[in-house]
C-alpha cells in the first residue's frame, strides 16, 4: 500500500503545484486544496502499510484488539484536516472580496493593479 500512497502523493502534489502556478486564483485555491490531500496522505504513509502478511488488515487504533495501526499519524492528520478546512474557507472568502473589489481574480491583472511599492512602472523614482 505504501507504493500506492507514494504515487498518489506524487500525483496530487504535482497537480496542485501546477495549479498553484496558474494565472487564475480559482485554480490556485483548488491547488491548495489538493495539496492538503497530498500532505495528509504523505503523513499517513508514515504509519506503515496496514496490510498484514496473510493479506488481512490491521485493526483501527482502538484498544481491545491486537495489531493496531500507528495512531500518531492519524491524530496529526485529524488536526490537519480541520486546519485545511479553515484555510479553505478563508481563501474562498478572500477570492470573493478580491473579485468584488477589483473585478478580477487574474493574478497578472492583480499584480498590475498595485505593485508592492505603489509604483506601476518601477525604476528610480
Amino acid at each position: 500500500m505504501t507504493t500506492v500512497l507514494a504515487v498518489c502523493v506524487a500525483v496530487l502534489v504535482t497537480v496542485s503545484v501546477y495549479l498553484m502556478l496558474s494565472r487564475e486564483l480559482k485554480s490556485v485555491a483548488m491547488g491548495v486544496f489538493a495539496l492538503g490531500h497530498g500532505a495528509n496522505l504523505s503523513i499517513l504513509a508514515m504509519s506503515g502499510s496496514p496490510v498484514l502478511a496473510d493479506g488481512g488488515l490491521r485493526n483501527p487504533p482502538i484498544l481491545g484488539a491486537v495489531n493496531l495501526v500507528d495512531p500518531l499519524p492519524q491524530a496529526l492528520i485529524l488536526t490537519a484536516i480541520v486546519i485545511n478546512f479553515a484555510v479553505m474557507g478563508f481563501l474562498l472568502t478572500l477570492l470573493i472580496v478580491t473579485a468584488r473589489r477589483t473585478g478580477t481574480i487574474n493574478v497578472d491583472d492583480l499584480a498590475a493593479e498595485d505593485r508592492p511599492d505603489g509604483s506601476r512602472t518601477g525604476g528610480d523614482r
Binding site: A6, V7, V9, A10, V11, V13, T14, L41, S42
Partner: peptide
C-alpha cells in the same frame, strides 16, 4: 511532486 512522493 516526484521528490515529495519519493520522500513519502
Amino acid at each position: 511532486g516526484i521528490s515529495i512522493g519519493w520522500m513519502t
